[in-house]
């Protein structure tokens, strides 16, 4: 896998999450695609060894940004990077956008908000009406919602917005011909249930990855009759494809 060393153009904290941006001279970034990223490359990072997957948070005027939550060592090191980070070119299959399909609901759980920013930007650019619903653990993580004008927010501890899950902040999803969601797999399964079988339902899944380019068969999700690699066939899947 080819990694590029990119300079950090900007770094800021959005509540509990960190946003970094860098210039990406390559092709336009499609919503829902991701990169493998790490604080530094070989031989500095023999440990932690693998790069980590991150969805694009935004892409504007050739500047790409990633939003991340510090969970373990890889993200802690990224959070400490000041000058440069290493990223791959954009990977995977993003969200399908169908301008004729009608109104869209965008649902994010926790750091699953990440791909909804760039998705919302693209929907707006194409004149597609959409509503954003975001669920968080608490007010600290919910602070990122300030970056989503008009979003409805829920928190599990009730410290901001509706008390409950993202589904408690959203109206009946059956009303929406298009539903997009990103978050923990349990949330995606709940969204799949609530959104029903009709219309365009797309879920961005989160699996452990080895390579990010289809080579290791590590990142699979269950589908009818077996498993498929989420890094090349996903990370965005039509809900009906996933055998959850």
């Amino acid at each position: 896998m080819k990694f590029y060393t990119v300079e950090i153009e900007a770094r800021r904290e959005l509540g509990a999450y960190t946003l970094i941006s860098y210039r990406w001279p390559g092709e336009k970034v499609e919503p829902g695609r991701f990169v493998m990223a790490r604080a530094a490359g070989y031989p500095v990072t023999l440990d932690p060894f693998l790069a980590r997957p991150f969805s694009f948070y935004d892409f504007e005027d050739g500047v790409a940004s990633l939003l991340f939550e510090v969970r373990g060592r890889g993200t802690a090191l990224l959070d400490r990077a000041t000058r440069t980070v290493e990223v791959t070119a954009p990977l995977g299959r993003g969200f399908e956008i169908d301008a004729s399909a009608g109104r869209a609901a965008l649902l994010g759980g926790g750091i699953g908000v990440a791909p909804l920013k760039i998705l919302g930007r693209e929907l707006s650019a194409r004149g597609i009406d959409h509503d954003v619903f975001l669920g968080f653990l608490d007010a600290g993580t919910a602070a990122v919602a300030d970056d989503f004008a008009g979003a409805s927010v829920a928190t599990m501890d009730g410290s901001a917005g509706t008390h409950g899950t993202v589904l408690d902040a959203a109206p009946d999803l059956l009303e929406y011909p298009v539903v997009y969601a990103c978050g923990p797999n349990a949330m995606l399964a709940a969204v799949k249930d609530a959104a029903g079988p009709d219309g365009l339902r797309q879920l961005s899944v989160e699996e452990r990855m080895g390579c990010g380019n289809g080579s290791c068969n590590g990142c699979v999700v269950p589908v009818d009759g077996g498993y498929v690699r989420s890094c090349v066939e996903g990370p965005v899947f039509r809900a009906e494809v996933l055998a959850w």
């Binding site: 023999l46 440990d47 060894f49 699996e207 452990r208 290791c216 699979v220």
Partner: peptide, 16 residues
Amino acid sequence: RAGNPPPRVAETPAGM
């Protein structure tokens, strides 16, 4: 062969 259920990969120091 469908292969094994995930998780299928785990990182280790200088390997996986």
